[in-house]
Amino acid sequence: MTASYDSQPSVQDAEPFFVGWAGIPARLGPFLGVVALVFVVGMAGASFLISATVNDPGDGTFRWGWGPQTLTGILTADPYPVLHITTPIDNRRISQGQSILLSGFGKRGVQDRAAALDGQLVQARGFLLTRGEIVMLQANGGADGLRAIEPKPDAVPVQLPESHPLGRWRIAGEICDGKCVVGAMRPGTGLAHRACANLCLIGGAPPVLVATDRIEGHQFFLLGDADGGPVTDAILNHVGMMIQVDGVLDLVGGLPVLRIDPVTLSLP
């Protein structure tokens, strides 16, 4: 017959018995002290190791310190609103021929206002964000942020920026929302930031492909669809991760624009 009781070794009789309401038995004190110390020091050590080894989020930032900027240029609305600077500003932070992405406050684009200003000479006012070669202006609300202006009588007539074809490319990199990646958030890239990026894109921020390797000297590419229109809905499933995509590359003004074929989006 099987006896199914457990006999407890007598050595356990020497163990102190802990009862919470009766306090910690003196003989357990040192042991529990060590456990508490290991816990606190272990947590602090893990915290340091995790926090000190984060990815470099890059140099993107809001240029609050530069104060509000007033820029003048030709606005193109497609695929996403861009201002091509015609008049440099005094502080030389922005030069003639530079092309600047536009956004509204927060996770909002300026498509509504830009549609009515497409191809016109525009004065834009707001704060700049910069990351390396890419610049964005967060336009103030309403006409203060974006408004058409009359060219001076003696000025050369308004001309749309030139477009230089750079050929067909397959580019590997990460699709980001143009606002966070230039510095609205640090980091503004990666899968952890994906939902935030998608909200920005849905709200109207321009999608930007950050290429793994420089192509024709460029790292940041504004995306559009094959016809040069917006491409937001077709890319939402591929934001924030390493992908590759085929497209036709043009340098429009000072900005490389990749007109992609969304069916070619794939993991590299």
Partner: peptide, 18 residues
């Protein structure tokens, strides 16, 4: 301690541009 080390101490030792 965990939170303090994470947001106040360790970032000084992190290799970040900004």
């Amino acid at each position: 301690t965990y939170v303090w080390v994470f947001i106040r101490v360790a970032p000084h030792y992190a290799d970040t541009t900004r």
